[in-house]
Amino acid sequence: MPELDDATVAYILETRPCFEDLRQVASQLAGLLVLEAAGAKSELPRHPMLAAAEELYGGAAGQVRRARVTARTERHHHHLMQATEEIGSALRAARLSVAIDPMLVPLRRAYAQLQGAARELPGFEMVEFQQGCCGARRRDE
């Protein structure tokens, strides 16, 4: 990874929290889908986690749109914007019905966009491994 300029570092610091929030919202929606698909009768449109996901999403989406983008960070930001749109679609679908596909399809696309973002710049990870089970971060990283 080439050395990062100040504007890129500032962008990373600015967008990392919203990346993590978007990842969290995607996980929350996927979790609700698991319950639904496993027949847990989660009453998805009224599930309390949906309200929490919407609140988190609102803050993250605003931050993504306000981020100061440079040429170096443009591709990353594009991924974040796409992920934001797809998660928004999934959230709207969740409010409308318990149907799985209208949520699952945009969620998969959102996940792919978040993965794309994670590949573009350092500091964005899809899984929190640090100090976790079988994933102790190396000191030289």
Partner: peptide
């Protein structure tokens, strides 16, 4: 949430 992958949740669906 350490060690848990959102993609695993989607695959579980």
């Amino acid at each position: 949430m350490l060690g848990i992958d959102p993609a695993d949740i989607l695959r579980t669906v």
